[in-house]
């Protein structure tokens, strides 16, 4: 399939990435090359084949319902680019600024 500028722009938007004109052009080329390569899978008949989601059988681990102290709040919040007391601080999300 053809990978267009519009497709890449749209995908980048979903993924919260911005590409400038030059990067966009480069990415369209790279994506086209990779998509053409992975389309090789179309040669494989897969009717009736179950998709494999995981290599091992997953097991749900049940924990005892007890309070455990893990991380120190300050050590964790200390990694945040911006904080206010015990909250992460971000630019305005709703309404006019």
């Amino acid at each position: 399939m053809q990978v267009t500028r519009d497709t890449v722009k749209e995908i980048a938007d979903y993924a919260m990435l911005t590409l400038n004109e030059q990067e966009l052009e480069h990415m369209v080329r790279d994506m086209q090359e990779i998509v053409s390569f992975v389309e090789k899978l179309n040669e494989v008949p897969t009717d009736g084949v179950e998709p494999m989601i995981h290599p091992v059988k997953l097991m749900i681990v049940m924990h005892d319902d007890t309070v455990q102290r893990t991380e120190d709040l300050d050590a964790v919040l200390g990694q945040a680019p911006d904080r206010s007391g015990s909250y992460f601080q971000v630019p305005q999300v709703l309404g006019e600024s």
């Binding site: 979903y14 990415m27 990779i34 998509v35 494989v44 998709p51 494999m52």
Partner: peptide
């Protein structure tokens, strides 16, 4: 970025079955 974009592409509506699910089936094979 390239891998995030390829991944987002193959998981997006319209490409999910042809790419992502197809690859999962090949993984089974």
């Amino acid at each position: 970025k390239r891998r995030i974009l390829l991944g987002t592409f193959s998981l997006s509506a319209g490409h999910y079955e042809a790419f992502y699910q197809k690859a999962q089936k090949v993984r089974t094979l």
